Simulated scan of single mutants.
Amino acid sequence: MANESGKTVKIKLVSSIIPTEGELEQYEMWLEGSCVEKGNSHYLRYEEVQEDLQIQTTIKLNEANSFIMRKGGVNMRLPLNPDLRENGHYESPFGSLPLVTDTHQLAIEVVQSEKVSGQFKTHYDLIIGGNSVGHYKLDIQFTEV
């Protein structure tokens, strides 16, 4: 799968957020995107629309050091490393905000048989200004169409 445009995949994304002060927020999305293999990593790419803003999302699938990168309506780089806290950032029209992730779980499985499929699971705390703002869980399953 060395093709730069990748394989077209159907994506099921389930996101759970438990804010430090608040109740569980959970949402599920079904998307179409692509899965690209580069070196020892796979990259899952998709586009979503939130509040009329188009956001291009790329997720690096690598158990040692993954990341979630978003561009468009919001710009964000969220590194995920189970061995140490990582610095990221979030940019909006209102300014840039430094973020820290404390990754508790990072599990990736990519199966390449006749069609590529896999899953990506992560659980992390998002830290802003030295304080945790919540616990985040992301569960993504994808299958080539």
Score class of each variant (00 low, 15 high):
Met1Gln: 07
Glu4Asp: 11
Ser5Leu: 14
Ser5Ile: 14
Gly6Glu: 03
Lys7Gln: 11
Lys7Ile: 05
Ile11Gly: 02
Leu13His: 00
Ser15Arg: 08
Pro19Gln: 02
Pro19Phe: 03
Pro19Arg: 01
Thr20Ile: 09
Gly22Asn: 03
Gly22Leu: 05
Glu23Lys: 14
Glu25Val: 12
Tyr27Gln: 09
Glu28Arg: 10
Met29Cys: 07
Ser34Leu: 03
Ser34Gly: 09
Val36Thr: 06
Glu37Val: 12
Glu37Ser: 12
Gly39Asn: 12
Asn40Ala: 11
Tyr43Ala: 03
Leu44Phe: 06
Leu44Pro: 01
Arg45Cys: 07
Tyr46Asn: 01
Tyr46Met: 03
Glu47Met: 10
Glu48Met: 07
Glu48Phe: 06
Gln50Gly: 01
Glu51Gly: 08
Asp52Ala: 14
Leu53Ile: 07
Gln54Cys: 09
Gln54His: 11
Ile55Met: 01
Ile55Gly: 02
Ile55Ser: 00
Gln56Cys: 11
Gln56Thr: 10
Gln56Phe: 13
Gln56Glu: 13
Thr57Lys: 00
Thr57Ile: 10
Thr57Leu: 03
Thr57Glu: 01
Thr58Glu: 14
Lys60Asp: 05
Leu61Phe: 07
Ser66Tyr: 04
Phe67Trp: 11
Met69Ser: 13
Met69Tyr: 05
Arg70Ser: 04
Lys71Val: 11
Lys71Ser: 12
Gly72Arg: 05
Gly73Ile: 11
Val74Thr: 12
Asn75Asp: 14
Asn75His: 13
Asn75Cys: 14
Met76Phe: 08
Leu78Ser: 00
Pro79Met: 05
Pro79Val: 04
Arg85Met: 14
Glu86His: 05
Glu86Tyr: 03
Glu86Pro: 02
His89Trp: 15
Tyr90Arg: 04
Glu91Met: 15
Glu91Thr: 15
Phe94Val: 10
Gly95Ser: 09
Ser96Asn: 11
Ser96His: 08
Leu97Gly: 02
Pro98Cys: 06
Pro98Leu: 07
Pro98Val: 05
Leu99Phe: 12
Val100His: 02
Thr103Gln: 05
Thr103Asp: 01
Gln105Tyr: 08
Gln105Asp: 10
Gln105Ala: 12
Leu106Ala: 04
Leu106Thr: 04
Ala107Asn: 13
Ala107Cys: 08
Ile108Phe: 03
Glu109Gln: 15
Val110Ser: 02
Val111Gly: 04
Val111Trp: 04
Gln112Lys: 14
Glu114Ile: 12
Val116Asp: 00
Ser117Trp: 05
Gly118His: 06
Gln119Tyr: 15
Gln119Asn: 15
Gln119Arg: 15
Gln119Thr: 12
Phe120Ile: 07
Lys121Phe: 13
Lys121Cys: 08
Thr122Tyr: 00
His123Trp: 05
His123Thr: 12
His123Ser: 09
Asp125Ile: 01
Ile127Gln: 02
Gly129Asp: 05
Gly130Ile: 08
Asn131His: 13
Ser132Arg: 12
Ser132Asp: 02
Ser132Ile: 10
Val133Leu: 07
Gly134Val: 03
Gly134His: 06
Lys137His: 06
Leu138Tyr: 00
Leu138Asn: 04
Asp139Ile: 09
Asp139Glu: 14
Asp139Lys: 09
Ile140Pro: 01
Ile140Cys: 01
Gln141Ile: 10
Thr143Gln: 11
Glu144Phe: 10
Glu144Gln: 15
Val145Ser: 09
Val145Asp: 06
Val145Arg: 07
